Computed example of a mutant assay.
Amino acid sequence: MPKTPRRRLPQSDRSFFTRLSQHVSHWAGKPQTFFAAMVLIVIWALSGPFFGYNDTWQLVINTSTTIVTFLMVFIIQNSQNRDTAAMQIKLDELILKLEGAREELLDLEELDEEKIERFRNEFEEMAAQARRILR
């Protein structure tokens, strides 16, 4: 079955922060970005003797990595929130279209831990029963 091209939303349908976080997440996940970061760390480490391993030399790496980490937490969380919400919507659509599917599972992610655990136990029991039948 041929793949259909991904339909992208027009830029105007996405907020500036959404576009920024998608771009940064995509860029940050590339191997080239990892290797560039490693090169910067090596350059910083090799510059230690030139700066006499002083406090300012250490402060440069500590401050820059702290700032990048702090900002990336929000970018990653935004991407994860969008991806999870999109996946839930897609799964809900599939559940609705399946005949005999249990519609009470549509908002499962909104339930508290005990209720989710009850559903999990129920499905684990069904899986165990199916394996017993196969044997």
Rank of each mutant, 00 (worst) to 15 (best):
M1A: 13
M1K: 00
R8W: 14
L9A: 11
P10G: 06
Q11E: 12
S12K: 10
D13M: 15
S15I: 00
S15D: 10
R19Y: 07
L20E: 09
L20Y: 15
Q22Y: 06
H23W: 12
H23C: 02
H23P: 03
V24I: 14
H26K: 09
K30I: 11
P31I: 12
P31A: 09
Q32Y: 09
Q32H: 08
T33M: 07
F35I: 09
F35G: 00
A36K: 09
M38E: 06
I43N: 10
L46I: 08
L46N: 14
G48Q: 04
P49C: 10
F50K: 09
G52M: 02
Y53D: 01
W57D: 01
L59I: 09
T63G: 02
S64M: 03
S64L: 08
T69L: 03
F70W: 07
M72N: 13
Q77I: 14
D83V: 06
Q88G: 01
L91Y: 02
L94D: 14
I95R: 07
I95G: 11
L98E: 12
E99A: 07
R102A: 06
E103C: 06
E104T: 15
L106A: 04
L106R: 14
L108Y: 10
E109G: 01
E110A: 13
E114H: 07
F119D: 04
F119G: 01
R120S: 00
R120C: 10
N121G: 05
N121L: 12
A127S: 11
A127M: 15
Q129L: 14
R131I: 15
R131E: 14
R132A: 01
I133Q: 10
